[in-house]
Design a protein around this nucleic acid. Sequence first.
DNA 1: TTCTGTGAACTGATTCACAGCA
DNA 2: TGCTGTGAATCAGTTCACAGAA
Lengths: 251, 251
Amino acid sequence: MATGRTHRPATRSRGIPEATVARLPLYLRALTALSERSVPTVSSEELAAAAGVNSAKLRKDFSYLGSYGTRGVGYDVEYLVYQISRELGLTQDWPVVIVGIGNLGAALANYGGFASRGFRVAALIDADPAMAGKPVAGIPVQHTDDLEKIIDDNGVSIGVIATPAGAAQQVCDRLVAAGVTSILNFAPTVLSVPDGVDVRKVDLSIELQILAFHEQRKAGEEVTGESGAVVRAPKDSGKGPDGDVPAVMPA
Amino acid sequence: MATGRTHRPATRSRGIPEATVARLPLYLRALTALSERSVPTVSSEELAAAAGVNSAKLRKDFSYLGSYGTRGVGYDVEYLVYQISRELGLTQDWPVVIVGIGNLGAALANYGGFASRGFRVAALIDADPAMAGKPVAGIPVQHTDDLEKIIDDNGVSIGVIATPAGAAQQVCDRLVAAGVTSILNFAPTVLSVPDGVDVRKVDLSIELQILAFHEQRKAGEEVTGESGAVVRAPKDSGKGPDGDVPAVMPA
DNA sequence: TTCTGTGAACTGATTCACAGCA
DNA sequence: TGCTGTGAATCAGTTCACAGAA
């Protein structure tokens, strides 16, 4: 793989850091709430608090979009809602298909926030013939056989995979071949896609494991006090036959 | 994020970067698959491919855990499964409660991967009295009134919030007051918690918005690149040095 | 030789702190 | 005055490239 030249000099506005992009929806949500309360302007401090970030970060983030604030005053809520919406591409309609209408797929189809900002569930697809025609969230489920046609007919570029892990890669391949270039993957598996296709994954199990890591560490600290020796820590509870139990042997 | 006073002599070993922690479950999944196929050892290259990362990153990650590999050979699959499981705290049982048994909560309760690695759904809680007693995924739903007792009786330290946004903060406060110190939040809202409590959020709407941002950008580039049926890779865009499409459209 | 483990360089993100505008 | 916008400093994460063990 060619490392190649890195990014373009970022002439202007193009080159918003990924971390910033990931926070824009957060700001947008907070701003929308303010808008509904008819609040005309917010300071970076207030908005940052509502979005759960610090104000310096927020101002830096907004600086990548342009100078949309007024010094000494703050940001115009409506204007910022519009600017961020536009930046995120939410001023247009995004038809989405959900593939795999099990418990999770059905829950996603029913999820309200889905339909809100420009995202429209264009179709539900499942491999089970018994599901075909049955409405879920008011939308009839269609069979996987017609996947390509459905994608094409609806001009879908975003697909959601909520199938079992074993089927995910195959579904992914078909979605991509049919023209989908962004995938939200709920299946607990690594998808491989060609360049130019974005995949984001949501994995419940991984999130829980990360929490467990920190939880375990808390339990350790709680008991340990000041000494380094962990007592009653739930870590090595007479585990395997191997003798070297020490948590980690320093190199 | 910091759990109170974090000043320990740092016995080495403690201080695994957050980014590394977030990848350990990925490695564990890949290793588990290898284990099931009775593969005895893997190289960093192979394992990295299976986990969807590059091998240098994987080796660096493992170096934080200790020296568990063998030069010239690779890693012992079983041994590594055990070490990572232990590091993540998965060798113990984690009772979990799910609050908010709507479409999503029910889907989570039914989710198999949930129950797998040490996580056990200890209770389901919902505010709707009509739900009380009704079994979901074989577990009877209990009423919110008993939340504190349920947490206490089951020794729960991890809670999952799948309520509507409006109820999430209140539920969160009660969970925390009852002793929960890790929360997985599916409600589209920012939760505020005291120091020492970890919150991770999963937000479908945000993920879609991030995808839409990139999708939009692709659409713009497509025009620039002229006639290519497939859009260029968003990452190492080794594309022409010519100027970009003026991205900012006037309001 | 093959492959791990790791300093060092690099890249990206966050925070600081203050200049500059309303 | 009160706030935004932003260079500079800092911090975290990634990648490089190679020393060194099996």
